[in-house]
Every structure is written in structure tokens, then in C-alpha cells.
Amino acid sequence: MNRGKNGLIVSFLALPLGLYSVFVLFPYCAAMLFAFTRWSGLSSVIRFNGLNNFIKLYNDEKFWHALSHNAIALVILPPITLGLALFFAFLFTQGTRFARFFRIAFFFPQVLSVVIVAVVWSFIYHPTVGLLNASIQAIGIKGLTSFPWLGDSRTVFGAVLGVVIWQSVGFYMVLFVAGMGSIPADYYEAARIDGASPWVMFWSVTVPLLWDTIRTAIIFIAIAAMDLFGIVLVMTNGTGGPSRAADVVPTYLFSTAFSDGNFGYASAMGLVLLVLVLVLSIVSLRFTARESFEY
């Protein structure tokens, strides 16, 4: 089996790793070095700054404030998003009517440009002509007339997370559907002969066999929860929301780098974020590492 193994490993890894090193890893490592400097990002004058940026970061309330929002997202997003995605993917294997139509439709939010997403949700959350306030009124709940969902520090982050879930469910659903595609039919056949209900089959066949994909999805969504850059930027128009109530680390980092002209400090944040997410990924990879099924 392993004849010519080493040659294959080297030749298959060389090109991807080479490209990746030159165009991604090298620039990223260079950027990480800026974390130890004072650099405006605009000149070749780069002053070495030791750990000063990190000390400043430790005492920076705004950074912790932003990080706390990422943490909230990290708790909320995975169960809801992956739960829904898995649920939908499962339903599609149940011979549901219109499955093809649903599968296409559920992916729509992924196809929509971020500009559109921002505008359409801005209208949905709109205080006066918004659909959300209209539906709340239709149910008969008063007292929320003209409530500004994106203009109130108590609701803005929740409103943004709602959009994230809406948008990402389709993505994970497609991942799961693809993963389910590689599960051999005999397993279901066997389970069916045993008289298993669809729900039991889901838990005893689909989930275990899909476990590797689910793990991947968990890592993806954890990384996404620690990011949220694009969506927060467009939903709060770059301000981080009222009282910065929707500010996340990447948006704070972005404004530090670009509007404050402090690339060194921003890079320090980037590095801290990187370490946090790496640790998180390694932990969750270990944590979820259960014996994946051997066929």
C-alpha cells in the first residue's frame, strides 16, 4: 500500500505549500512582526516597540468590549446555525417534497451581495416602514412602535447576529449535504431492515458518519464568530453601532489601523486574535476528536 508513499507526499504537498507560503504565510508573518512596532502603515519608518502594544491592549477597555461581543457570538452562533443546517440537511434526505427547490432556495443568502444584505435588512429593521415592526404590531404587541433595532445599544448586536444566522445556515447546509453524499446507502438499508425510524437513523447513522464534516463546520463557525467583520461593518455603517454595542475585534482593529493610522497596534490585536482562535480550534479539534467511522 505504501509503495512510493514518500514521493507522493512530497510532490503533492510541495506546490500548495509553496504557493501558500509565498503569498499568504510570508505576508502574514511579516504583518505579525508589526505587532511589536509602532508603525503608521504609511511610511517606511517602523519603530520597534517591544511589548508595548500588548500592554496597551491589555488595558484597552474597547478591545475587551469588542472581544466580549465575539465571545457572545461564539456561544450563540454554533448551536443555532449548525442545528438548523443539520436539521434541514437531514430533512432533505427524508424524501421531502420539493427538496430540490428548498435546497436551492436555502442557499440564496450566500449568493446575495453583502451590499444587498445590508440594504434589505436595514429595511426589515427600519423603525417606521420596517417589516419587523410591522409584524410585531400585527401580532398585537404594542409599545414597540418605531423601535430602532439597529439604533439601540440593547438590540443592535442581536439584530446583526440574526442576519449572520440567516445568511450562514445555507452554507453549512450545503456542507452537510455534501458530506451525507459520501455515506454509503447500505448503512441506511441495514438500519432500515432493523426497523429504525428516520430520526434514529439520523442519530445512529448520519451523525456519526458525518462527524468529520460536523467538526469542520464547528471550526468554520468558530472562526466566523471570532470574525464577523464584514457583516458588522455594513450593518452598523462602520461605526460599531450605538455605544459601540456591536463592535467586534476585527472592526475595532480595522478602525485602529486605518482611521487611527496605527498599524502596529492593530497588528498586535490581529496576533492576539490569531492566537485565541488557534487555541480555540486546537481545543475544539481535540475535544471533538472521537473515533471517526471506518468503513
Binding site: 501558500y20 502574514y28 511579516a30
Partner: peptide, 12 residues
């Protein structure tokens, strides 16, 4: 490559 913010690395 999936984590570090891209815009910090644009200059390098």
C-alpha cells in the same frame, strides 16, 4: 490563513 485579518497583510 483562515484567521488572520487579511487587510493587515496587504502591504507585505
Amino acid at each position: 490563513g483562515m484567521i488572520f485579518p487579511l487587510f493587515l497583510a496587504l502591504v507585505p
